[in-house]
């Protein structure tokens, strides 16, 4: 849950990029870091394996300026996507305020997306949180690969597989090219702020 300091008029909230391994979560954060370097007072923290895979999490504190008189800082995290890292994935979800689910558009990854979303539900349930109630945005990533002739899942299929019952906002994106990365971020920030706004006086 977010921490709201009424005296200092500060809000800190936690947004987690979730999804299957290699789907593009870290690439989203890297793009945000490059684009908004001036608003990020530090290097991106990345706890990685030798093979450059996310081991624990990536972290980016993102100062988004003033909303309703509050200075708002969004703490952006990614989880490690690999199945074997569920214990650490669960730790990162602790106190989450909003989730971006980064799905891999490659046809090969269809099953992995579905399993990862199921895993998100289970891990949230362990914290007595409900995926259907938390601010959530779907990102269908790697759309650029279609141009290279790599078979992609259609947006309809992705919607059917992942978003049929959730019915949350979605974006077609290319984290590598930066397409719709910022739009995804803006959407999750506004949903998260809306859900917090009842606590801001």
């Amino acid at each position: 849950m977010a921490f709201i300091n009424l005296k200092k008029k500060e809000v800190q909230a936690k947004i987690v990029y979730y999804g299957p391994g290699r789907g593009g979560k870290t690439t989203n954060l890297e793009f945000i870091y490059k684009k908004y370097k001036s608003r990020i007072p530090t290097d991106m923290v990345a706890i990685k394996t030798h093979g450059d895979r996310t081991l624990f999490f990536d972290f980016l504190p993102f100062d988004i300026g003033t909303i309703k008189g509050y200075s708002v800082r969004m703490q952006l995290y990614t989880v490690p996507g690999q199945v074997k890292y569920n214990a650490t994935r669960k730790l990162v979800l602790r106190g989450v305020d909003g989730i971006v689910f980064v799905a891999d558009s490659m046809q090969l990854r269809r099953e992995k997306n579905v399993l990862s979303l199921k895993n998100a539900r289970e891990n949230l349930a362990a914290y007595k949180k409900d995926l259907t109630k938390i601010p959530l945005v779907m990102q269908y990533n790697k759309r650029d690969l279609g141009e290279q002739g790599i078979p992609l899942l259609s947006v309809e299929t992705l919607q059917q597989d992942l978003n049929a019952d959730l019915n949350v906002p979605f974006f077609e994106a290319s984290a590598l090219e930066g397409k719709n990365v910022v739009e995804t971020l803006k959407k999750i920030i506004s949903l998260t702020m809306a859900s917090l706004s009842k606590d801001l006086t």
């Binding site: 800190q12 923290v45 999490f57 972290f59 504190p61 650490t88 990162v92």
Partner: peptide, 18 residues
Amino acid sequence: DIYSLAALAAGNFGAVSA
């Protein structure tokens, strides 16, 4: 950056508790 430190500390403590 104290925010990065806090994120790492919470993760670290969580990992050790687990």
